[in-house]
């Protein structure tokens, strides 16, 4: 019997190693250890074994059983591994490109706008919005722009015919004309009329000038303006904001300089120069980047804020110009062509 058991294990070892599929395995398992299996049959012969040999025989059978189970487990493991292998298919070539499109890309103007908004958010400016179709009041009158100012001329700005009706752009007086806003300063007026001081907003958006399109001019472009209204606001506060903005955006090596200028809605008014010779492609010592000033008391009076109590500053700049400076882009038209080879560079 001992010989039979040894032969059984030896045969099982050979047979099980040759198994490829799960049904083959189940059949082999039944043949060996199933109710009608060979080991079971041998165990049934235990009764015929002399009593004194039974313990030794029992031990031998148990050992055989364990050995067979180990062989079965190993065979099953091999089959399962083969099954998983079969699911995989051939190995991938990791260097092949993904056939899926992507990734998507943000437009550089969006990237610059959002970066500016994040920088300003840190010092408490929230983002305001307003219509691109404006009326003369919000675009000019409320900003102290005289009636004969060139920007109000049909030469320089896009107007709509008197019959045009815009259902959701409110007029201040019934007979004013609609036009495409020439600056985002109109958002300042709408924000001040809607809310109460103190105010701290940044208003980015699309603006329009009746201009020839060339490398540096575009019929529509984007601006970003800041308005700060509080008590006791000073020229020095305005300078501090600009130092903060451009230091954050372009690094601590950046300098800002004010030059006296004239805008009808601020007094005093300045143009802002950037000293950023550490940037690539920047050769001039100072680059003009925007305009700013202390909000003119006539603007406050127009929106019903007491100019004796409230003071403030405003700052505005062109987003295309800033993006051109940041990325070293030299033609404004690239922003509007959307050539993928351009768009993919800024992601």
């Amino acid at each position: 019997m001992q010989a039979t058991l040894t032969a059984l294990v030896a045969k099982a070892q050979t047979d099980l190693a040759a198994l490829k599929t799960r049904p083959e395995f189940e059949a082999a398992k039944a043949r060996l250890v199933g109710p009608n299996g060979e080991l079971t049959a041998l165990m049934k012969q235990m009764g015929t074994v002399p009593k004194d040999q039974r313990p030794a025989m029992g031990k031998l059978i148990n050992e055989t059983k364990t050995a067979l189970q180990a062989l079965l487990d190993a065979a099953l493991g091999t089959i399962e591994a083969a099954e998983l292998q079969a699911q995989l298919g051939p190995a991938v070539d990791a260097t092949l490109p993904s056939p899926d499109a992507g990734p998507g890309t943000y437009h550089p103007l969006t990237l610059v706008r959002e970066e500016m908004c994040r920088i300003l958010r840190k010092v408490g400016f929230t983002v305001a919005d307003g219509p691109e179709v404006e009326t003369e009041y919000y675009c000019f009158d409320a900003l102290n722009t005289p009636a004969d100012h060139p920007a109000r001329d049909t030469q320089d700005s896009f107007f709509f015919p008197p019959t045009a009706r815009f259902g959701n752009v409110s007029k201040h007086s019934p007979d004013e004309k609609y036009l495409l806003r020439t600056h985002t300063s109109s958002v300042q007026i709408r924000t001040m009329l809607k809310g109460e001081p103190p105010i701290r907003i940044v208003s980015p958006g699309r603006t329009y000038r009746r201009d020839t399109t060339d490398a540096t001019h575009s019929a529509n472009f984007h601006q970003l303006e800041c308005l700060y209204v509080d008590k006791n606001v000073t020229v020095r506060d305005l300078k501090a904001l600009l130092d903060y903005i451009f230091g954050s955006l372009l690094g601590k090596a950046t300098k800002t300089r004010f030059r006296p200028h004239y805008f009808s809605y601020t007094e005093p008014s300045f143009e802002v120069d950037l000293g950023a010779t550490h940037l690539p492609k920047v050769k001039k010592e100072w680059i003009e980047i925007g305009g700013c000033g202390m909000v003119d008391s006539s603007v406050f009076a127009g929106v019903g804020y007491d100019p004796e109590v409230w003071s403030g500053y405003a700052f505005g700049m062109g987003l295309e110009r800033l993006a051109m400076l940041l990325y070293g882009i030299d033609d404004i038209r690239y922003f509007y062509q959307n050539d993928l080879r351009f768009l993919k560079q800024f992601a």
Binding site: P198, R236, A240, F258, P260, E267, P268
Partner: peptide
């Protein structure tokens, strides 16, 4: 206020001292 600008012009707008941004929460 117009005279503030005249004084500042002759003082030099490049000499405005730096400061930190005043930003009480809103």
């Amino acid at each position: 206020i117009d005279l503030v600008e005249e004084v500042l012009r002759l003082h030099g707008t490049d000499k405005i001292p730096t400061a930190v941004v005043n930003s009480p929460g809103l």
